[in-house]
């Protein structure tokens, strides 16, 4: 089953829409769903032109395709456990929160908190991801615990904060403090980033570019070969009695 949701132009276009009802599973029982614009509850078809092709018995057979100006659409795919969501443009905050299965593919950029506290499944973002991609929630001790997030563009600050499991791959640069407080899982930044793995407790963080403003409390272990690259291995964060692994191509301190 393919569900096509095309965003209608709205008078108050600037007010974000919260649409946690947009998960493949919900479309098994029709398109009679509700979304919120600010404090007003609206029917799905008041916000989108909805069209459905085919039918499905399981969420795995459902593909939801979002088009139009979806950059202010929040919480799409929250608690998703199967099926596919394809976003042709950009997507708003909290896309794929708590998801445990299925796939989300975003062709444009993703706003903050993409895949927050994700437990399983896969998210692919073809553009850039904003701050707190694959991170945890305020005050939380564990962020993402499983699944995969892959960003082909750049990522913002606090990428994979409190990462506890799963894999996060960014092909471009990342902002400040990727992998802060991480305790498990794997984080890979292909480009440069600033202050990676601050206060890490466990897990592995790879930076294939330069780690700028490197945290001074990592102990240098030596050089290792990793997937055809020579990387410098550090252990830390010592300040936090951490036993994580940080691998960087190059690094510079703010000395």
């Amino acid at each position: 089953m393919k569900v096509m949701l095309a965003m209608k132009p709205a008078a108050k276009w600037f007010i974000p829409i919260e649409a946690e009802s947009i998960v493949p599973k919900n479309f098994l029982s029709g398109t009679d769903l509700l979304v919120w614009r600010g404090n007003r509850e609206l029917r799905l078809d008041e916000v989108f032109s909805v069209s459905v092709e085919g039918d499905a018995d399981r969420s795995e057979e459902v593909e939801v395709v979002l088009s139009g100006d979806t950059f202010r659409l929040k919480r799409v795919g929250e608690y998703m456990d199967g099926g596919t969501i394809t976003v042709l443009g950009g997507i708003g905050m909290h896309c794929g929160n708590f998801m445990s299965g299925g796939t989300i593919e975003i062709h444009g950029n993703a706003d903050g908190w993409l895949g927050r506290e994700m437990a399983g499944g896969a998210i692919v973002c073809r553009g850039d991801a904003a701050d707190y991609c694959a991170s945890g929630y305020r005050g939380g001790r564990k962020g993402m615990t499983g699944g995969t997030v892959e960003v082909f563009g750049r990522a913002g600050d606090f990428l994979a904060e409190s990462l506890a499991g799963g894999t996060v791959i960014v092909h471009g640069d990342a902002g400040d403090m990727p992998g802060a407080e991480m305790r498990g899982g794997t984080l890979v930044v292909n480009g440069n980033c600033s202050r990676p793995a601050a206060n890490m407790k466990g897990g592995s963080c790879y930076v294939y570019g330069t780690a700028q403003r490197m945290i001074p409390t990592f102990r240098k272990i030596g050089t290792v070969q990793h997937e055809g690259r020579a990387l410098i291995r550090f252990s830390g964060d010592l300040a936090n009695r951490g036993k994580g692994n940080l691998f960087v191509k190059g690094y510079e301190y703010l000395d």
Partner: peptide, 17 residues
């Protein structure tokens, strides 16, 4: 941040790093 981290490590006796 870097200075605070360094102080934490020094208080733990890890001045050498």
């Amino acid at each position: 941040y870097a200075v605070l981290s360094a102080l934490r490590a020094i208080v733990q006796g890890k001045t050498d790093t």
